[in-house]
C-alpha cells in the first residue's frame, strides 16, 4: 500500500477505535436490556460496531454514527431474542410438564427470583411484538434518550416521536396483559 493509503487506513483505524471506546458500553447496556444476557449483549455491540466499516458510516458526524449504531444494536438484539425464543420453544414445551413440580419445590426468595425473571421475559416478548419503530422509540425513551436522539435513530421527525411513543406504550401494555 502506498503512503497515502497507509495514512488513510490509520485515520480510519483511529476513528474506529475512538467511536468504539465512546459507544461500546452504551450499546452493551441497550442490548442487555433486550437480550437479558451480558455476554450476548457484548456480542451484539461488537457486531454493530464492526458493521461501521462495511456500511461506510465512519465518515459521518458523531451524532449520525451514534443514531445508526443504536438502531442496528436494538434490531440485532431483538433478532437474537426472536431466534432464541424459536429455538427454545420446543425444549420449553417438553419441560412444561415438569414445571408444576419444580415450582412446588421453590420457596421464598428463590420463587421471587423466578417470578421476576418470568416478568422480564414477558416484557421482552411484549416489546418484540411491537413494530420496529415503536419498540425502538420505547426502549430509547425509557433508557433516558432525548426526543432528538430517538428521532435520529428511528429516522423520523422529532415531532413524530410522541406519536410513536403513545401508540407504542399503549400497544405494549395491551400485549403484556394479553400474554399474562
Amino acid at each position: 500500500m502506498d503512503a497515502t493509503g497507509a495514512t488513510g487506513a490509520a485515520v480510519t483505524n483511529d476513528r474506529f477505535a475512538d467511536v468504539f471506546r465512546r459507544r461500546y458500553a452504551e450499546l452493551v447496556r441497550l442490548a442487555a436490556r433486550v437480550t437479558g444476557d451480558a455476554m450476548e449483549a457484548e456480542d451484539v455491540a461488537q457486531e454493530a460496531l464492526t458493521r461501521l466499516s462495511t456500511h461506510q458510516v465512519l465518515d459521518r458526524p458523531d451524532d449520525e454514527i451514534a443514531a445508526w449504531l443504536r438502531r442496528i444494536t436494538i434490531n440485532a438484539s431483538f433478532n437474537r431474542l426472536r431466534s432464541r425464543s424459536r429455538s427454545t420453544d420446543r425444549m420449553q414445551r417438553s419441560a412444561a410438564a415438569e414445571r408444576p413440580l419444580r415450582d412446588a419445590d421453590r420457596t421464598g426468595p428463590q420463587l421471587a427470583q423466578v417470578v421476576r425473571a418470568e416478568e422480564r421475559a414477558l416484557v421482552r416478548a411484549a416489546l418484540a411484538q411491537l413494530p420496529e419503530r415503536q419498540r425502538t422509540c420505547l426502549l430509547l425513551r425509557h433508557s433516558g434518550y432525548r426526543y432528538t436522539e430517538i428521532a435520529a435513530a428511528v429516522g423520523i421527525a422529532t415531532g413524530s416521536v410522541g406519536v410513536l411513543l403513545t401508540r407504542g406504550e399503549q400497544a405494549f401494555r395491551r400485549h403484556y396483559e394479553e400474554m399474562q
Partner: peptide, 27 residues
C-alpha cells in the same frame, strides 16, 4: 398510565442485564 407502565417495565430489565464492560478487551 401507559407511559408509567412502560417505564417501570423497561427499567426493571436493568436488574437482569449486564454490568461493567472491559472496553479495551472488547476492542
Amino acid at each position: 398510565g401507559a407511559a408509567r407502565f412502560a417505564a417501570r417495565s423497561i427499567a426493571d430489565l436493568d436488574a437482569g442485564a449486564g454490568g461493567a464492560v472491559d472496553v479495551d478487551a472488547a476492542l
